[in-house]
Design a binder for these strands. Structure first.
Length: 213
DNA sequence: AACCGATACAACCGCGACGCC
DNA sequence: TGGCGTCGCGGTTGTATCGGT
């Protein structure tokens, strides 16, 4: 049996954060910095579990968050990275300055999945879908087959994922060799600029958009 | 104006990874 | 080296808002 993440579950606040709670969290982190989430709530005078505090900060309160609509270049990037990495949202988000994994994940599930499906592309493996298929009503429910998992070798590194994406039989030539030179690390503006230099004629979401429109 | 389904997004939950003792 | 605690991730749920009837 696993312990609940918070001992005093009954006394903990849940649900939407109030402005006062936000302010307490912001003030505390400004003073003491991030980290030690477990003890933070008590120290900051919050009736929340550390996990909840971390999530609130990371996904909503952090000052470097971009927020607002995703640009076309960001959409392109997410699609490309998802084709390579599957549902590794934190890795994908790491390539999008100012975006969080939760935000990217939500955006994918609500916008991009649907767009790809409308284009006749299977969002799970980024391959063209069989001509006629009953529209999958359950958006978000079919996460069974991303590029990564199925036949995995769980601990694929990014290099092998890259290989996976460039294997002709794994993509029926739909995705070109992207050679994104992915590495794990903090997002760098320069890197992102490099990524944006990928020949957009090879795999451009906006191109697809114009095709179907 | 009221209802209802669809959509978007914030927040929660469970689990694995990792570090420390 | 095994146990324990904490952190971070991905999947899922809850709810507010929007648009159509």
């Amino acid at each position: 049996m696993r312990k609940p993440c918070c001992e005093k579950k009954g006394t903990m606040n849940k649900g939407a954060w109030t402005k006062q709670e936000d302010q307490k969290l912001i003030d505390y982190i400004h003073k003491h910095g991030e980290g030690c989430w477990r003890s933070l709530p008590q120290a900051a005078g919050l009736l929340r579990c550390g996990k909840s505090c971390r999530l609130r900060w990371v996904n909503y309160l952090r000052p470097d968050l971009k927020r607002g609509n995703f640009g076309e270049d960001e959409e392109d990037l997410i699609i490309k990275l998802h084709a390579l990495l599957g549902n590794r949202w934190s890795l994908i988000a790491g390539r999008l300055p100012g975006r969080t994994d939760n935000e990217v994940k939500n955006y994918w599930n609500t916008h991009l999945r649907r767009k790809l499906m409308q284009m006749g592309i299977d969002p799970n493996n980024h391959r063209p879908r069989p001509a006629v298929s009953v529209p999958n009503k359950s958006v978000g429910s079919d996460h069974s087959s991303t590029c990564k998992p199925e036949n995995s070798q769980e601990e694929e590194d990014i290099g092998s994922v890259l290989q996976c994406s460039s294997k002709p039989e794994s993509n029926t030539g739909f995705l070109p060799d992207l050679n994104l030179e992915l590495t794990i690390g903090p997002p760098l503006i320069e890197e992102r600029l490099q990524l944006s230099h990928i020949d957009s004629t090879q795999l451009s979401f906006s191109n697809f958009s114009t095709v179907i429109s």
